[in-house]
Computed example of a mutant assay.
Amino acid sequence: MPRAAPSRTLRTAAGAGLLLLGLAEMAAAHAWSLSVSSGSRRLFLHVGNGSVSNANGNFNGATGTNGAINLVQVTVPAAQLGNGTDLAMTSNSTQSTSLYGDGNNTCPTPSSQVMVGAGYRRNGGSASATLGVTSPANLTSAAGDTIPFTEISWTVSAPGSGVPNVIPAGTFSGATQTLATVPGNTYIENCHTFSYANNAVRAAGTYNGRVTYTLSAP
Rank of each mutant, 00 (worst) to 15 (best):
S53L: 10
P77D: 08
A142S: 15
R3F: 05
E189I: 01
G39Y: 07
T75K: 00
E151A: 12
R121N: 04
R121F: 07
S35A: 15
L215D: 07
Q177F: 05
S7Q: 09
T214R: 14
V52T: 14
N198E: 06
T97G: 07
V52R: 03
G174I: 08
S135L: 05
P77N: 08
S93C: 03
N185L: 08
L131N: 05
S126E: 06
A175I: 06
N92Y: 03
G17A: 14
A200T: 11
T155C: 00
A4S: 11
G84A: 10
P164A: 15
V72S: 12
V47E: 06
P164S: 14
H30Y: 10
A197S: 13
H192M: 14
T214K: 13
N185P: 11
P218S: 15
T214D: 14
C107R: 03
N83F: 13
T206G: 05
T130E: 01
V52K: 01
T65N: 15
N92R: 04
A68W: 09
L99V: 14
I152T: 11
T109F: 03
A31T: 12
T97P: 01
S153M: 00
T90I: 11
N66T: 10
P148M: 01
H30R: 13
A16N: 14
G119M: 09
S112D: 09
A24C: 11
Q80E: 15
T212Q: 15
S38E: 11
S33D: 08
A62E: 01
D86R: 11
N199Q: 12
N123R: 07
T150E: 05
P168T: 15
M1R: 09
T63L: 12
S135D: 04
R41W: 00
G103T: 05
T130F: 00
T134S: 15
G103L: 06
S173N: 07
S112V: 14
S37E: 11
S135T: 13
R3W: 01
T212Y: 13
T90G: 08
A27E: 12
I188C: 06
E189L: 02
A27Q: 10
G184M: 08
V36F: 01
P108F: 03
G132F: 03
A31D: 15
G82Y: 10
A55G: 11
F149D: 02
S111D: 07
G50L: 03
S216G: 13
I147Q: 00
N54F: 09
N60A: 14
S153E: 01
L23E: 11
P108Y: 02
G205Q: 02
I188M: 04
R11L: 08
F194C: 04
R42I: 10
S96K: 07
A143P: 01
P2R: 10
A158W: 01
P159L: 02
G119D: 05
M1H: 08
